[in-house]
Nucleic acid binder design. Structure first.
Length: 455
RNA sequence: GUGGUUGUAGCUCAGCUGGUUAGAGCGCUGGAUUGUGGUUCCAGAGGUCGCCGGUUCGAACCCGGUCUUCCACCCCA
């Protein structure tokens, strides 16, 4: 025997049951995407490195899987970089392609390349795997699916309202109640940084603030102090550390805090519009909550920022995220096209549904009828029933070999097939079939029509 | 990328301070049962103890490296 095979770290095989469950989630999402008017596109698994590099920050660049050039790639590498073992400098010489890191940047590239055939606003959805050279953890993989819906070419805040409703619709379909759609706004964060005189430290400021629920008030303050934000400045945003109350109350308090920041107030207005409309129109499975500490994806989000938290009690990172980016296509030369979108984390939603036991039983149902095989003529007799069952849309199969009945029964049992059909000489003479219910052991002899009726 | 953790049969795991032929349960295969599974009973197969090297008379056990698992950080779906 050869050495036992394995798969790369952070990747997975999926069993038939797992694929069925994943398909269930994907179909649910896809249905709602289409219901909301999004159209599907697909992009290549790998892009030119220059399309991806530099779009996700330094951290992102590190996590991008690079693809080695074909052929004698070292020949083109510079002697100097080879000798100094400078990996960073070398990589651009020996790798020109990289695996897709997310679906948003490829979408921006798509919009720019296809701008003449696209009617704005353009609503697209995309469900494809992405790859990150990350260290795996619970709910973190190196290959995973993203399910994205984005709109480009509209500044309207109604888009944001609709995206919250879309989230709600999907989670409602999945019967995943109690999720929280957290919302924030880049302009609010910029305003906060502005009033404390740390506008130039926006990223450091928000990254620290983002950790509030993890490292606590003192931890955040310490990190801010270390980043050169003064104690007096931190005092000005003290209310953020005990930011309780309804969305309405939070908005009012933010407006007071940000009264001297034009940008900040604009952010508050945007938040107010979205939250008010969403709350008035109503949600089913999810609730919307303003969270000023939310600061993901700051590298390109300019307006709304979304993040979806699993129901309380489920230990899982965010199961979705999104936001508005006023000028994403700008990096590819198309200015002034605003985009806003959301993403569903399929793999994490799977883990949450599994943990809460929310997959419907019908999702994993496979073959409904197994016809036992007692020999060639009996199998042929069974085949006639099989054809009719399949025409009627019943998932059915014939056991391929005339094996011992125990073995055939066991096969049906283990695969959880609810019915088996026995048809031997007796039934052939009578023109009947014996149908056995594997759940309760009952069986009855029926005509071909009788069987079809039962299914 | 940093720190920690894990690896023994298909699966879940025992295996004493290093000491002969490494065990259990479940699963698997066959039989009891030649048209009746899920229960029971009997028998059997299956392991270079993650991999490489070192210490030792002797290593699943100790040491080093490597890969893998999971966790925290970074970051993120």
């Amino acid at each position: 025997m050869a050495k036992k095979p394995g798969i790369p770290k952070g990747t997975r095989d999926f069993t038939p049951q797992e694929v069925n469950k994943r398909n269930y989630i994907m179909e649910t999402i896809k249905q709602q995407f289409q219901l909301y008017g999004f159209q599907p596109i697909e992009t290549p698994s790998f892009e030119n490195s220059e399309t991806l590099m530099g779009k996700y920050g330094d951290e992102g660049d590190r996590l991008i899987f690079k693809i080695l050039n074909s052929g004698d790639y070292l020949r083109k590498a510079s002697e100097e970089h080879l000798r100094s073992k400078d990996s960073n400098a070398l990589v651009s010489q020996i790798s020109e392609k990289a695996l897709r890191y997310d679906l948003t940047v490829p979408f921006a590239r798509y919009v720019v390349m296809h701008q003449n055939e696209i009617d704005l606003p353009f609503k697209r959805y995309q469900i494809q795997p992405v790859w990150r050279a990350d260290r795996p953890q619970k709910g973190r993989f190196r290959e995973f699916y993203q399910c994205d819906a984005d709109v480009v070419g509209s500044d309207s805040l109604w888009q944001e309202v609709e995206f919250v409703q879309l989230y709600d619709a999907v989670f409602n379909d999945l019967q995943l109640n109690g999720v929280t759609i957290k919302i924030n706004n880049r302009k609010v964060l910029a305003g906060l940084a502005e009033i404390i005189g740390a506008a130039d430290k926006l990223i450091d400021f928000t990254v620290a603030l983002d950790k509030l629920d993890k490292i606590g008030e003192e931890g955040v303050k310490n990190e801010m102090l270390q980043n050169g934000i003064s104690e007096a400045a931190i005092e000005k945003i003290q209310p953020l550390f005990s930011f309780e109350g309804s969305n309405q109350e939070r908005l009012e308090r933010l407006a007071v805090m940000l009264k001297d920041s034009e940008t900040g107030l604009q952010g508050v207005e945007e938040l107010k519009f979205i939250v008010e409309k969403v709350e008035k129109l109503g949600t089913k499975a999810a609730r919307i909550a303003i969270d000023v500490t939310l600061a993901r994806g700051l590298n390109y989000y300019t307006g709304a920022i979304f993040e979806v938290a699993a129901p309380k009690g489920v230990a899982m990172g965010s199961i979705g995220g999104g936001g508005r980016y006023d000028d994403l296509t700008g990096i590819f030369g198309l200015k002034g096209v605003s985009g806003v979108g959301i993403s569903f984390g399929l793999d994490r939603i799977y883990l949450v549904l599994e943990e809460l036991g929310l997959f419907p039983e019908s999702v994993v149902e496979q073959t409904k009828v197994l016809i036992l095989n007692f020999g060639e003529s009996e199998a042929f007799y069974g085949m006639q029933l099989l054809q009719d069952l399949r025409s009627a849309g019943v998932k059915a199969e014939l056991y391929p070999d005339a094996a011992k009945m125990k073995k055939q029964m066991n096969y049906a049992n283990k695969r959880d097939v609810p019915f088996v059909v026995l048809a031997g000489t007796q039934e052939m003479n009578d023109g009947t079939y014996t149908l056995k219910n594997m759940r309760n052991g009952e069986q009855e002899t029926l005509s071909l029509e009788g069987i079809l009726e039962k299914m």
